[in-house]
């Protein structure tokens, strides 16, 4: 693998390219016309999706738990933000409230699952996913039901409105950077080590003083909070929300995304979100068949490289042993519920 210094350089270069992506550079002699309005919008959607996927990666890839409800948490964040912004609250407050709400619901959801066996967290989240969607759809007085909530205004920053796609893109990019750094910090802290321990061997971890129940709740709640924060950005991005993107199907797609990108790999969610959000735009010719192709690709990948695209890249790049927190062992191994 590449050395840490080169890795930092690549990250910095990637960040620079993302900042410059929407700008027309032909004026300074670089033949790059910049992204159009729609391209910028899709890039923003990719970032928002990646934030939610990062949360799933923490839960699934690092802590070895399961979640089938990330879209529901995105929904919680989106509705909290939409309602608060419409009621005249500042976006910053709505953003925080979205994260806190998803965190709190995540804790509540984790509790029942802790009492029981391994796969039951997946079952509980699956049930929650559908229940949350029913609430979004049925509680018309609050969520507008199937008619949804429209005209969600974009935030203003220092008196400057972010109504233009480009401005909002940079805003989301900055938040993504902060959230990415925060997650990176968590994962490399002793907390991250404890999360990995509970993925690899919860019984041994418990015997070493690691409070497995608490860390399970924390991983699940932090991951869910990332979903809520993503939702908070999603609402002003699309400016109209209805219950459909927050149903069970999209939650399952989040799970696919993370595993396709590479569960337990830090860059995995960004890659997985790119495959889910950006690729269909480039594969316009495939039109309605995109999901078919995607499904076949996922199934092939699981059979031949269950560590995802990042795992494949690691395998193909010149091998150099390095300490990694990534799972090469079969995920969820042998456990019977």
């Amino acid at each position: 693998m590449i050395s840490p210094r080169l890795a930092w350089l690549l990250v910095a270069l990637g960040a620079l390219m993302l900042v410059l992506a929407p700008i027309d550079l032909t004026g300074i002699g670089i033949p790059y016309p910049g992204l159009k309005r729609y391209g910028t919008y899709i890039m923003t959607l990719w970032l928002v999706t990646a934030i939610a996927a990062m949360g799933v990666n923490l839960i699934v890839g690092y802590a070895g738990l399961e979640t089938l409800a990330q879209a529901a948490f995105v929904g919680i964040g989106a509705y909290v933000t939409a309602l608060m912004v419409k009621a005249g609250w500042p976006f910053g407050l709505a953003f925080l409230a979205s994260g806190v709400a998803a965190f709190a619901v995540g804790i509540m959801l984790g509790f029942p699952a802790l009492r029981v066996r391994k796969h039951y967290l997946a079952f509980v989240t699956l049930a929650f996913s559908v229940l949350a969607w029913l609430v979004f759809r049925n509680e018309q007085w609050l969520t507008g039901g199937v008619m949804g909530i429209g005209d969600i205004s974009r935030p203003t920053l220092f008196g400057h409105t972010l109504r233009r796609h480009v401005d909002f893109y940079w805003f989301v990019l900055a938040i993504t950077a902060v959230l990415t750094f925060a997650l990176w910090w968590i994962i490399r802290s002793p907390w991250g080590r404890a999360f990995t321990a509970l993925r690899e061997n919860p019984i041994r971890a418990e015997s070493l003083g690691v409070d497995v129940r608490l860390y399970t709740l924390l991983a699940f709640a932090i991951g869910s909070a990332y979903g809520g924060l993503a939702g908070s950005l999603y609402a002003p991005l699309v400016e109209f929300i209805d219950p459909n993107p927050f149903a069970l199907g999209p939650s399952l797609l989040f799970m696919l995304m993370v595993v396709v990108g590479g569960a337990g790999r830090f860059a995995g969610p960004f890659v997985g979100a790119a495959v889910a959000v950006l690729l269909p735009e480039w594969l316009r010719f495939a039109e309605g068949f995109y999901l078919l192709i995607y499904a076949v690709l996922v199934m092939t990948m699981m059979a031949f490289c269950p560590t995802g695209i990042m795992g494949l890249a690691e395998r193909l790049l010149p091998a150099r042993r390095r300490p990694t927190a990534a799972a090469t062992a079969p995920l969820l191994g042998e456990a019977k519920p």
């Binding site: 699981m302 059979a303 995920l331």
Partner: peptide, 9 residues
């Protein structure tokens, strides 16, 4: 490959 890849598949 274990339970999760099969679930994903």
């Amino acid at each position: 490959q274990g339970v999760l890849p099969l679930v994903i598949s």
